[in-house]
Design a protein around this nucleic acid. Structure first.
Lengths: 213, 213
DNA sequence: TAGATTGTTAATCGATTAACAATC
DNA sequence: TAGATTGTTAATCGATTAACAATC
């Protein structure tokens, strides 16, 4: 496998889409796929797909195409979703509970270990077998259970503060749902989700289409 | 204002970020901002910010910078979030309820009119003053209330089918949280959120950082 | 073998950055 | 006015697409 140097973010963000469509194909009993067929499914050009994949090595075979199962596994390995991750969720409101209940999450090895909140009313409530714990227990829990990833579902006012607690106790990956840009050190992976921005973008395209009628 | 031709998606997706940071500045009593200061906040280059804004007209003043309040309003207009939108949510599970309860949503003029589900157990339950209605009532409700936007929070198996119902009753904007790519006609704006893909991307960067240690 | 389709290089396109004249 | 900072053009950079030789 070609040892990949600096891969652009755009490439990385296309990989999960390949992964998903390959899963769909396998579910439909399709074992073999060409870049052309993947192009039809994903909407990316066949050329781009081959370029993307060849950043990580030659997974295909000339004259044949790609083995769907093998390609999916390889992409899974590249993305790092062939491993188990121990996850905690901070903020057990609507979004926190939605994440905790989301099944697709578990299927790919992301294991929710606990939820945390500071609202006494929800402490002790159970979400999918997980008792909601008090925020005070956060540092100890992270260290004892070797947590890999923290999901921040708190109000934006405290999100950075929570992130600091998570990282100072050794967490190296943060999935942030608060509508802010959380800042972390260079050794920590951060994904700011920003549903707001997604909605505003939708509003823009909606408006554009209305205007061109 | 320069009548904007074809603006790239990348530009559009930066606008909400400007909008948000301008709001923060105003809240802190800052009325004036330079592209340089916006660069510091957003992480984009000052040059890029000026380019982006000048796609839509000259909102600044040489030697001074931008009036934060005015610029924010102009970006709001460009995005189309200066209007009210009537929204329905289809699928009243965790994600649907989270969206319905999300306050930031209301503040910018997106008004949730109703939630729909087909699970008899949740019918009649109230989420933020909205009774959960039966899916059967969907077409009539959309037409009677002139709904602008539909949020799809159903399982992926039925998401496309729901989208078809929405669009055939006149909805022109769909915000999709099911982990699929919903296909719609050219007159409909669609935003596929894909939290899965966001998570996988995070896994990739987490893994990369671990490896370079 | 002939046909198909990848892997990979080269060409193109578009987006970002740099530079600076305009001007407040 | 002098200083600051935009608006805008030109240069650069990177990403996408096209093309085709390699090869299964």
């Amino acid at each position: 496998m070609a040892k990949h140097g600096k891969i652009s973010d755009a490439v990385i963000r296309r990989l999960p889409k390949y992964y998903r469509y390959l899963g769909d194909l396998l579910k439909n009993g399709v074992n073999r796929v060409s870049s052309n067929e993947l192009s039809r499914l994903t909407g990316f050009t066949a050329s781009q797909i081959r370029q993307d994949l060849n950043n990580f090595g030659g997974f295909g075979q000339q004259g044949y195409g790609y083995d769907a199962k093998n390609l999916r596994e390889e992409i899974g390995k590249i993305l790092g979703i062939n491993k188990k991750y121990k996850v905690i969720i901070v903020g057990a409101g609507n979004i926190g509970q939605a994440v905790a209940n989301y099944a697709g999450f578990y299927e790919e090895g992301f294991e929710v270990m606990a939820l945390f909140d500071k609202n006494p009313k929800v402490l002790g409530l159970k979400i999918r077998d997980h008792e909601i714990k008090d925020m005070d227990e956060l540092p100890q829990f992270i260290q004892e259970h070797h947590i890999d990833m923290g999901v921040i579902c708190t109000p934006k006012e405290v999100s950075q503060e929570i992130a600091d607690i998570l990282t100072s106790n050794g967490i190296k990956a943060i999935w942030n749902f608060a509508p802010t840009d959380i800042r972390v050190g260079n050794d920590v992976a951060i994904e700011n989700v920003h549903m707001n921005e997604s909605l505003y973008t939708l509003a823009y395209y909606y408006k554009s289409k209305q205007e061109t009628k």
